[in-house]
Design a protein around this nucleic acid. Sequence first.
DNA 1: TCGCGATGTTGTCAGTGACAACATGAAGAT
DNA 2: ATCTTCATGTTGTCACTGACAACATCGCGA
Lengths: 203, 203
Amino acid sequence: MTYHHGNLRSALLDRAATVIAEEGIEALSLRALARDLGVSHAAPGRHFKDRADLLAALAAEGHRRMTAALNAAVAAAGDDPVARYNALGREVVAFSMRHPAYFQVTQHPEVERHSDPSLMAARQAFGDTVRAAAAAAQAAGWRPDEDLEALQLFSTAAALGAASVLMRQSKFAGRPTVELLAIAGRVIDLVIPPSLEALRQES
Amino acid sequence: MTYHHGNLRSALLDRAATVIAEEGIEALSLRALARDLGVSHAAPGRHFKDRADLLAALAAEGHRRMTAALNAAVAAAGDDPVARYNALGREVVAFSMRHPAYFQVTQHPEVERHSDPSLMAARQAFGDTVRAAAAAAQAAGWRPDEDLEALQLFSTAAALGAASVLMRQSKFAGRPTVELLAIAGRVIDLVIPPSLEALRQES
DNA sequence: TCGCGATGTTGTCAGTGACAACATGAAGAT
DNA sequence: ATCTTCATGTTGTCACTGACAACATCGCGA
């Protein structure tokens, strides 16, 4: 019988994402992951310093995937900076529905306390993407007199907050994703209109 | 030596709030609470069915305290429904800073999955307070054409999301509370202006 | 004074995380 | 082909945890 799994680190991360999506972060157990993957209880310790280290790695990957998705959504939205930031906000919620485990782990307070370089770098890149899009929208005419830090806090809080509430409030459970995305879209439109043209018509 | 603590349930909840504020929810341990309070490891089991039950009780208390604080803030804001809802939003963030443990436990996904009747009632009362204030603000002229469910999601996501981000993002750590409340105030003003008069001047 | 329920206690079991020491596999150097 | 080294498995152990059982004490009401 072979001792070498060959790809255990990736398998642990993938399996962890499945468990988190199904049962939540607190249900994650290194020993259970090892059992699921057919290795001994100490094998995960060869790839991750401890349970927090695995969660940090998963959160780093989550941030990277989310940043990539946001950049893709922004690029697909054309040249209008207001439409681009609106698309970014909608993609935050869409991403959380496509990847509940990655989203949850990026937002979990236990993980945020972990000072892992890879995670901090991924978080920084996420912040840079949001900041650049917010600054461009403001420069184009959205809330020009507002402090950018407050604008950023406002828009990320609304998008991340809406994603979290839609994910876990029982009143939204069971509703079709397309309906939840529509509600989220209206929330994002309250944050920033869907286009510069729409912004001009508001004023 | 007396066997009867006399007030163990309350002491457990108080001590749990302290541990959560200092170390986070995942650091909470029933045995450690029992040690801290000088009782045996099984004593907490006489007051709470399990660890999740204690967290649910703490979250129920957190919701009750937050609802009371929101109602007080709304009442203190006078008769203008727009000013009242703005004050409610600011109080969400102020409460989270005064009572970090209660706030965290009300927002924790692990706790939200717990179907405890007292917690669900407290959550319902919180939702009723927010819904009533949002409906009154809308009736007075704030976003009159918008779906109330989307408006509510927008405003609660922004307020709760801002509170969470200010609490745990390292870029805000160490800043004086008065400064964080000022940033939060600007975020809430972006959700809803501070008065009906200010709302009229925007249009 | 007695009985009963509330609320403590000691004890046990299974699971966990973390770590140590040992075992195997793969890759590179000779 | 062989040897060495590092990566990555293994078994084992310890302390802590949650949960539960059985027993012990306390307080209150009859």
